[in-house]
């Protein structure tokens, strides 16, 4: 199994994908965190009238959390894509044959891919967080705001952001197996995460029981795991797109891990059954 994981890691590092993705994660971390920090330090609170600065109403911790997770949504989209590509490439370039000849127990191959992706996701997530600390931290420091308040809680947010990005990669892996055409899989996965899910959550918000359901969606679970909207006035949170009901951080983590587990297991199950043509 260790050899299989090594082989999968080698696959990830022997094409241009890894540094392209690494660079994208780092740069989006820098740019988006800086952008969020800029708007938060220069903006007023929507819906609360003029003259009320965001920095006055938000605790320092909440502000730092928003800044440093500002690139999370781009970040998990990128790791989702990597997850899809890890399977999609094997089918598209027909290397699956070679892969399954070397290890005919295909479930183990998918499991090895999941482990390699988790490692890559953690590494990529760390890059994004490093970028966010750099970009966002600079802007916060320039605005004379605390760069790293409540170190313990903020650290938990950052760590869970890294973990969440890795879990999204596993969701992508499952999507890549479920939709064995790489371009279609990419399209569906990205559209589901960025368009379908928010629209669905918005639609559900008109129903009494809807918000309770929306909090279990992957994006909402991700935000909950990172604790982005806790300690914030619910009206401000709502104005920023938070669903009124939020899971606790561990709940969000568990829900997201559940999605990753289900998708990975579905990938293993399907890969074992399919013919490799």
């Amino acid at each position: 199994m260790i050899r299989l994981v090594r082989a999968e890691l080698a696959k990830l590092t022997t094409t241009r994908l890894w540094w392209g993705m690494g660079l994208a994660l780092l740069l989006s971390g820098v740019a988006l965190a800086a952008l969020v920090a800029f708007f938060l330090t220069h903006g007023s609170v929507p819906g609360l009238g003029e003259g009320l600065e965001i920095t006055d109403t938000l605790p320092a911790l909440a502000l730092a959390r928003m800044v440093y997770t500002g690139a999370a949504q781009i970040g998990y989209l990128l790791t989702l894509v990597v997850g899809v590509v890890v399977i999609g490439q094997e089918l598209r370039h027909r290397t699956a044959t070679t892969t399954f000849l070397a290890e005919p127990r295909r479930g183990r191959v998918v499991a090895a891919k999941a482990v390699a992706l988790a490692v890559a996701g953690l590494a990529g997530g760390s890059l994004l967080v490093a970028g966010a600390l750099l970009g966002g931290g600079t802007v916060l420091a320039l605005g004379d705001l605390p760069v790293f308040p409540d170190a313990g809680l903020l650290l938990r947010t950052l760590l869970l952001q890294v973990v969440a990005l890795a879990l999204w990669a596993l969701i992508g892996l499952g999507a890549g197996v479920l939709i064995p055409h790489q371009v279609a899989a990419l399209f569906v996965a990205v559209a589901a995460a960025w368009i379908v899910e928010p629209l669905l959550a918005w639609g559900l918000s008109f129903l009494d029981w809807g918000d309770g359901l929306a909090q279990y969606f992957p994006s909402q679970a991700t935000l909950a795991a990172m604790d982005v909207y806790s300690d914030i006035d619910p009206r401000i949170a709502a104005a920023m797109g938070a669903s009124p009901e939020q899971l606790p951080w561990w709940g969000g983590l568990l829900v997201l891990a559940g999605y990753a587990a289900v998708m990975t297991l579905a990938g293993i199950w399907l890969t074992r059954r399919r013919d490799v043509l």
Binding site: R3, L4, R6, A7, A10, K11, T14, T15, R16, L17, Q89, H93, R94, T95, T97, T98, A102, E103
Partner: peptide, 24 residues
């Protein structure tokens, strides 16, 4: 096998090294 592919962005040597890694 016929229709066995290679990742176009991976070198021939790396292609073999990836397979070799599975068997040490």
């Amino acid at each position: 096998l016929e229709a066995t592919g290679f990742h176009p962005g991976r070198s021939g040597r790396d292609h073999l090294r990836v397979i070799a890694a599975t068997h040490g």
